[in-house]
């Protein structure tokens, strides 16, 4: 900005912004702090300084076998995203580079499938999964999440691919590049960042999906969303363990999210805000 800002003004804004930001972040911070407390400590009043015990983490693993739902989350979210990319990349590619008369209509129609409320198809999906033996299976859930995120994947990739200028292909051709050379040396390097952002955002969305993951699993295929939900039954106040499980469940996705803030805007607004 061209305007000179006095340091005093800047300090004022800084203080205000930090207070608000810390208030918003507080529930997460407090969860992390509580995860390092003992159970009696966790319910003995407000305190920002934990005793630093790792007991809760150890118990979450030894008593509830935390590793299993964690791996289920990894398999289901990564699996569904990779599947969606495999199906979505060719589609987005062709729509961006050789658009036809109906490309726009197809894109809008894909977006419209995203508007269908999940709960509206709960009954048929549940019955089909039951009849096909897919309830509580990782494969069923992976396919389910792939279908849910496919429209976002195609849309995001399309908005990225569309920004690759067509002239660059002509230039490459003039320089004598073959079709294969075009794809490997020109297009792929330009497409990789878009594909990577799409991958990241969709892993986040699949990791946090909390309708199908809870309803279609019980034990074996239950990912972290379903696992954490099981802590809601009022069997006592296990706040330290809840906090430890929660911290482990959100930490990887929080870090990925910080890296993908900008892509998030683009992906979730279908390119309407950039």
């Amino acid at each position: 900005m061209a305007r000179a800002v006095s340091t005093r003004t800047k300090i004022g804004w800084t203080i205000a912004a930090w207070i608000v930001a810390l208030l918003i972040f507080f529930p997460i911070l407090y969860t992390i702090i509580t995860s390092f407390k003992t159970e009696p400590e966790a319910i003995s009043g407000f305190s920002l300084i934990p005793s630093g015990t790792l007991e809760s983490y150890w118990e979450v693993q030894s008593r509830y076998n935390y590793f299993q739902p964690f791996m289920n989350s990894v398999i289901i979210s990564v699996g569904s995203t990779v599947l969606a990319l495999l199906v979505g990349i060719p589609a987005a590619w062709s729509m961006a580079f050789s658009p036809g008369r109906f490309t726009k209509d197809i894109l809008m129609w894909m977006l419209s499938t995203k508007m269908m409320p999940a709960v509206a198809v709960l009954v048929p999906i549940y019955l089909l999964f039951r009849d096909w033996g897919l309830l509580d299976s990782r494969i069923g859930l992976t396919v389910m999440l792939m279908l849910i995120n496919l429209p976002i994947v195609v849309w995001m990739l399309y908005t990225y691919f569309r920004e690759i200028p067509g002239e660059i292909l002509e230039a490459a051709r003039m320089d004598g590049a073959t079709l294969w050379g075009e794809i490997v040396y020109v297009l792929t390097p330009m497409a990789v960042p878009g594909i990577a952002s799409t991958l990241l955002l969709n892993i986040i969305l699949a990791w946090n999906e909390s309708f199908w993951t809870i309803r279609l699993t019980t034990v074996n295929a239950a990912p972290l969303t379903a696992f954490i939900t099981s802590f809601s039954s009022p069997q006592g106040l296990f706040w330290a363990k809840l906090s430890a499980a929660s911290t482990l469940a959100i930490a990887p996705i929080l870090i990925m999210g910080w890296f993908s803030q900008r892509q998030l805007v683009r992906g979730l607004t279908f390119g309407a805000v950039k």
């Binding site: 918003i24 972040f25 529930p27 997460i28 969860t31 986040i204 990791w207 946090n208 909390s210 809870i214 972290l224 969303t225 954490i228 939900t229 809601s232 929660s246 469940a249 959100i250 996705i253 929080l254 990925m256 999210g257 910080w258 803030q261 998030l264």
Partner: peptide
Amino acid sequence: ISPFFVMPPV
């Protein structure tokens, strides 16, 4: 931005 990445049950 962080709360957006916290899964709903948590």
